[in-house]
Design a protein around this nucleic acid. Structure first.
Lengths: 199, 199
DNA sequence: TGATAAACGGAGGATGCCTCCGTATAAATA
DNA sequence: TATTTATACGGAGGCATCCTCCGTTTATCA
């Protein structure tokens, strides 16, 4: 027999998992507010863990960024499903788009600060695109089926329009502007209650 | 009479002007090599002045970046004129393009690191575009008149092609690649000495 | 050749990065 | 449940950078 090839591993410790989650949450907020050069020590402070813990979970800044991004995409996907059952179709869409603004906030920091797009895994990009299209597709379908939104907008159209909104105005306080534009956009998608066409 | 509204100012001190120049020169090199997050203390060290002197001349990092950029554009413009009289037309163009690679090195750092394009003065952009087009126009004209380069390339075309070359490959060691591409590009512009067309 | 406005240098306090290691604790074992 | 042990934790510490502040130096002007 050779050396033991596969030790029975212990279950990961509960505190480790918890701290990882706390860190991701804190990082999402800090990066969203402060951009790409936010302090990692601030992230650790906000998460309520030591700086060593942060570095153990995410050895490099990029590791943390990528994890935050992936995490946010997953959250958005889940959020779409929750909103579909909890809200009216149009409000579900609107709230999901709001959440998107927050995601892009983090994404901007990552892309512009660290060229994640340049050398970053394109696997990550494909992954996020797929999940995003699926999520927005469900939201749209719901609202269209309920007769509240016009039916000639595809999921990809909507995502493209969003990207346009996001990248068009890249100021320091773009977030409130983006939220306002989302409102306008959603209202524009509505099917008018009192049609004005010829009878 | 009111209070004296306009005191006869002293002439600016010679060492001040000299140090400013030294700082710009050092900053150009440091930014070019190290990107946008290069250390300002390193700039001061390289210039051989105290850190306080750096901050007196350029209170913020952005101030220094913008000054370096403006300075480089001016230098490039002057360089074009010098090369026109010192070199053969084609070599003048090639060397000027080399110098461009170095400029873009600094520019990249500025744009990507600090969103100079986003909030930065668009006056600065207009200024640089105008001067650059003029410079490359003169270089082209000289070489075309000498019958060494094909005549169907405009100054703007050339600048656009350059931008393409520069932005296409955004790696860490893009500079050598860009220089090689410039070579290829200039060679491609040449009028062939022994035409191979049908007789 | 003073007088003085202006510029100089760099110490110093604050903050951030990342490593290292003694301590604490959750899972495995008895 | 009690003990063992693999694993994770926190944060001190060393180094780098940022930026300010102020005593000293020096170029201009009379």
């Amino acid at each position: 027999m050779g050396t033991e090839t596969k030790k029975s591993r212990r279950k990961p410790r509960a505190d480790s998992l918890r701290n990882r989650e706390l860190l991701l949450q804190a990082a999402a907020e800090i990066f969203s507010a402060g951009g790409q050069q936010a302090s990692l020590e601030a992230v650790a402070r906000k998460a309520g863990v030591g700086i060593g813990t942060l570095y153990r979970h995410f050895p490099t800044r990029e590791d943390l960024f990528e994890a935050v991004y992936r995490n946010e995409v997953d959250h958005l996907s889940d959020l779409a499903r929750e909103l579909i059952v909890q809200e009216t179709p149009v409000e579900a869409l609107r709230k999901w788009l709001y959440a998107n603004v927050r995601l892009v906030s983090a994404k901007r920091g990552m892309i512009e600060g660290l060229q994640l797009v340049a050398y970053g895994s394109s696997e990550l990009k494909a992954y996020s695109f797929e999940r995003m299209t699926a999520a927005v597709g469900e939201l749209l379908q719901g609202a269209v089926r309920a007769g509240e939104l016009r039916s000639d907008i595809s999921a990809e159209d909507l995502l493209r329009a969003l990207l346009g909104i996001f990248y068009a105005n890249s100021g320091s306080d773009w977030q409130p502007t983006a939220l306002r534009l989302v409102d306008v956009f959603v209202d524009g998608l509505r099917v008018p209650k009192a049609p004005v066409g010829p009878h």
